[in-house]
């Protein structure tokens, strides 16, 4: 997803799923919400490597891709 060579989808077709980090969120909690299983948080971390350096450090207001 963060591959700069990937062409942008045409307007209206972008299927990227976004989530805005809320106060008290963790990647585990977000994974639990979207996938039902917190241990899959690595999927979200990997999809957001361009903005996340550490899976334990996310900030309210950050927009994360949810694969």
């Amino acid at each position: 997803m963060s591959d700069p060579n990937t062409p942008l989808p045409p307007e209206g077709w972008d299927a990227t799923q976004w989530y805005e980090v809320q106060r008290g969120d963790s990647l585990w909690k977000i994974a639990q919400h979207f996938y039902g299983d917190g241990s899959l948080y690595t999927k979200i971390f990997e999809a957001n490597r361009d903005v996340l350096k550490n899976p334990d450090l996310i900030h309210p207001g950050q927009k994360l891709r949810i694969p």
Binding site: P10, Q32, G36, P67
Partner: peptide
């Protein structure tokens, strides 16, 4: 042209989500 430019990305996104959900020990609420 619009379909070929847009649909494969949509299908990929669905596949990505389905593949992750298939690995989940428990499904979301």
């Amino acid at each position: 042209s619009a379909l070929t430019a847009g649909l494969p990305g949509v299908v990929d996104a669905i596949k990505g989500r389905v593949d992750i959900l298939a690995q989940a020990k428990k499904l979301p609420a």
